Simulated assay, not measured.
Amino acid sequence: MTALGFLYPGHSAEDDYPRIEQLLDSDIRLTVIHTDIGEDAHRVDALLEMGSPERLAAGVDQLRHSGAEAVVWACTSGSFVFGWDGAHDQVRALAKTAGLPASSTSFAFAHAVRELGVARVAVGATYPDDVADHFAAFLRSDGIEVVALRGSGIITAAEVGTWGLDEVLELARTADHPDAQAILLPDTALHTAAHLRTLERELSKPVLTANQVTVWEALRLTGRRVNAPSLGTLFTKEPVIQVRD
């Protein structure tokens, strides 16, 4: 049994995690602890407060009793707004507080892009443009080329959580670019676990989504690899490796 812990802000698409646990079809348990979201706003000042050490530490207190072997801050915007160095500081503080290997969804995206061996990505963000720009800057800090970036202007995670397949597919399609080798949808408030095979079939390229990469990152921290094609290319034993050029 491998136990994985996730600190998830508020309530929007947390039901992706039990769905992913089922799709993994293995001896893996996913425990989600909800952190206090504060103000539900895709606005930089609110996101910095959401990802503050105090809010994450409060979640860790609950997580300690779950038996988790690793913990991931399951929030993209509440990590990348700190910048590359600040997000590293956030993760180091989380690891120290939890006494566990730790990461965040933002780093999960960067690591997943490397796993697929791609160099150029398109980003379909639910956020306003200024917040989406922070995510693109975060990726570029790791040498990832963002060839297309689309923001959707949605302010609250609550609204994002109401989106279904049609909205998610439209976001991915409009974000896509001929030069993109993969499409990234960076919001853990977005339901995507049930749609990954459809997204990749319709777009004909790997699609990385926030809750998907968050779980993959926790598995990576514990040294586990799981073959689960229903969770997309990232979760296949032999992912499509594309040579950087």
Score class of each variant (00 low, 15 high):
Asp179Val: 06
Gly5Glu: 05
Leu48Ser: 13
Pro178Trp: 08
Val240Lys: 09
Phe6Lys: 13
Tyr127Asp: 03
Pro178Met: 10
Ala3Pro: 02
Ala102Thr: 06
Pro186Trp: 08
Glu14Ala: 13
His177Pro: 00
Thr31Trp: 13
Ala110Thr: 13
Trp163Lys: 05
Ala87Cys: 08
Ser77Trp: 04
Leu184His: 08
Ala95Ser: 13
Val226Asn: 10
Leu169Tyr: 03
Asp129Gly: 03
Gly38Lys: 01
Asp15Thr: 14
Trp73Leu: 11
Val226Asp: 07
Gly151His: 08
Ala68Glu: 07
Phe82Ile: 04
Asp36Glu: 14
Lys96Tyr: 09
Leu48Gly: 09
Ala68Asn: 10
Asp179Ile: 05
Asp187Glu: 09
Leu185Phe: 02
Tyr127Val: 10
Leu185Trp: 01
Gln242Val: 15
Glu145Pro: 00
Ala158Arg: 12
His177Gln: 03
Ala194Arg: 07
Glu49Ile: 06
Phe82Ala: 05
Lys237Arg: 15
Pro206Lys: 04
Glu200Gln: 06
Ala125Tyr: 03
Leu139Phe: 01
Val226Glu: 07
Ala119Gln: 10
Glu145Thr: 02
Asp142Gln: 03
Leu165Trp: 13
Ile33Met: 11
Pro128Leu: 01
Ala108Thr: 07
Asp16Ser: 14
Gly124Met: 07
Ala132Glu: 02
Glu202Thr: 06
Met50Tyr: 08
Glu217His: 12
Arg201Ala: 15
Asp25Glu: 15
Gly51Asp: 14
Thr209Val: 09
Leu185Ser: 00
Val131Arg: 00
Val226Arg: 07
Thr35Arg: 02
Ala218Lys: 03
Glu54Lys: 13
Arg120Gly: 03
Ser77Pro: 07
Ala148Pro: 01
Met1Asn: 09
Gly161Met: 00
Arg244Pro: 13
Pro101Cys: 11
Ala136Phe: 00
Arg29Cys: 10
Val71Ile: 14
Asp15Gln: 15
Leu48Val: 15
Val243Asn: 05
Arg150Asn: 05
His191Lys: 13
Leu169Trp: 01
Thr162Tyr: 04
Ile241Gln: 14
Thr174Cys: 08
Ala58Ile: 10
Gly67Asn: 10
Trp163Gln: 04
Ala193His: 08
Glu167Cys: 09
Arg92Gly: 00
Leu4Glu: 02
Ala70Thr: 13
Glu167Arg: 15
Ile241Glu: 10
Ser230Arg: 15
Leu63Lys: 06
Ala74Thr: 12
Met50His: 07
Arg19Trp: 13
Phe235Trp: 04
Asp15Arg: 15
Ala13Val: 11
Arg55Ile: 11
Leu63Asp: 04
Leu221Phe: 09
Val213Gln: 01
Gly59Glu: 05
Val160Glu: 03
Val123Thr: 06
Val226Gly: 11
Ser26Pro: 09
Val215Met: 07
Ala46Asn: 12
Ser104Gln: 03
Ala218Pro: 06
Arg150Phe: 05
Val32His: 08
Val60Ile: 15
Trp73Gln: 05
Trp84Glu: 05
Leu165Gly: 09
Gln90Cys: 05
Ala210Trp: 07
Val213Ala: 03
Thr162Leu: 12
Arg225Pro: 01
Val240Met: 14
Ala93Trp: 13
Ser66Gly: 06
Ile28Glu: 10
Leu219Cys: 09
Thr162His: 12
Asp36Asn: 13
Ala119Ile: 04
